[in-house]
């Protein structure tokens, strides 16, 4: 098991390296970073200074090596660098130190803030939103899927299927606007919910926690995974309920409920886990539209804002973060398969 995870992690590092290469070269071509930092004004001396500061005067391969050194948790840095970049971590050595550090994603062109801090601030909100959405989608989806399978060919089955097809077909920006309008505006009196809003409200009294603002975006985000989980659970359950061991379970004298939930569902879960973890990773990487529509200050909104301003360090940072999340969630999925189904468990 440990060997398996190590192997997966090593593969993961390779994937991340690939992403870094891609991200670095792709974002090289656009605009002149020194102009972005400075704005339209500024004399050639200032621009040259900034170029020097951003290492833009160096050859490309050297820029890349420096970038890699910055984002790698294991790197070489000198004293001056550590101070200037405010690196956090352990440092070994004299003038030139070997560092085990928090990745340094450089600073925003816009407001000079450390990109790592910006992302770290947004990440918990995205995680909260993704977890809430997936929790809703998973619980409701599995329930509906099992119900549809057990009551196959009845009105319950067909309505569950119909709803899920609608759910799959409706794009989230459309559903987002619709849901925001209906529940956050038209029915605002009854629901007490607002069109937009993030986890915290800032007013004269300081910041207040607004957990209710989570409801609408989570609902919107959950609809598509919900629909897909419902369909997958249903088809997988239908398959499982025809298996011989289900008949064995009935022959033992178990009640229908125990047979379905204990013997049936666990066998039907594997394809569902693939869907759940896949969607979860996707939502963690930022639900761009939904976060934007509801003004939820997560990774998705940060990225969209950064793109608008051509703030590449932030965009690059969030792309890398997304890649990391995908790698980690996939390892988690592989472990989950084994937990649910001993046949794929590793020796």
């Amino acid at each position: 098991m440990i060997r398996f995870i190590t192997k997966k992690l090593l593969y993961g590092i390779l994937v991340l390296l690939g992403v870094v290469i891609l991200v670095f070269w792709v974002f090289q071509g656009f605009a002149d970073p020194s102009r972005l930092v400075l704005g339209q004004t500024g004399d050639s001396a200032t621009i040259a200074n900034i170029k020097k500061e951003l290492n833009l005067d160096q050859p490309k391969w050297k820029q890349f090596t420096l970038y890699l050194n910055d984002i790698s948790p294991l790197s070489f840095s000198n004293k001056e660098e550590i101070e200037r970049k405010k690196l956090k971590g352990f440092f070994i050595g004299g003038e030139n130190k070997l560092a085990i550090k928090v990745p340094y994603l450089r600073t925003s062109y816009q407001n000079k803030r450390d990109v790592w801090d910006i992302l770290l601030e947004a990440l918990p909100l995205t995680i909260l939103l993704a977890v809430a959405a997936m929790l809703f989608a998973t619980v409701a989806g599995i329930l509906l899927g099992v119900l549809a399978a057990v009551k196959q060919n009845t009105w319950m089955d067909s309505s569950a299927i119909f709803t899920s097809i609608v759910g799959i077909s409706a794009p989230s920006f459309f559903m987002g606007i619709l849901i925001a309008y209906v529940f956050g505006f038209l029915l605002s009196h009854f629901t007490g919910l607002h069109l937009t809003g993030s986890l915290y409200d800032y007013d004269v009294n300081g910041k207040t926690l607004q957990l209710k603002n989570l409801i609408l975006p989570a609902l919107t985000l959950g609809i598509r995974p919900l629909a897909i989980i419902t369909q997958l659970t249903r088809s997988s359950m239908l398959d499982v309920l025809n298996q011989d061991y289900i008949r064995t379970a009935y022959a033992k004298g178990l009640s229908k409920r125990t047979v379905i939930w204990k013997h049936g569902l666990r066998n039907a879960l594997n394809p569902v886990i693939t869907a759940i973890t896949g969607w979860f990773a996707e939502l963690l990487a930022g639900a761009f539209f939904v976060e934007y529509i509801f003004g939820w200050k997560g990774i998705g909104k940060v990225t969209v804002d950064a793109l608008e301003n051509l703030d590449y360090p932030v965009v690059m940072g969030s792309v890398l973060l997304s890649a990391l999340i995908f790698v980690l969630v996939n390892i988690l999925a592989d472990i989950l398969y084994g937990v649910v189904d001993p046949r794929v468990r590793l020796k």
Binding site: D244, Y245, T248, L254, H263, N267, V340, D341, P342, R343
Partner: peptide, 25 residues
């Protein structure tokens, strides 16, 4: 009926390969 199944009347099936639930010991 459930109290008789597996208790007073028990059954063995044809396919031992598929008659046991794969996810439980």
């Amino acid at each position: 009926l459930q109290s008789i199944r597996g208790n007073e009347i028990a059954m063995i099936f044809q396919e031992p390969m598929t008659s046991l639930n794969p996810v439980y010991t």
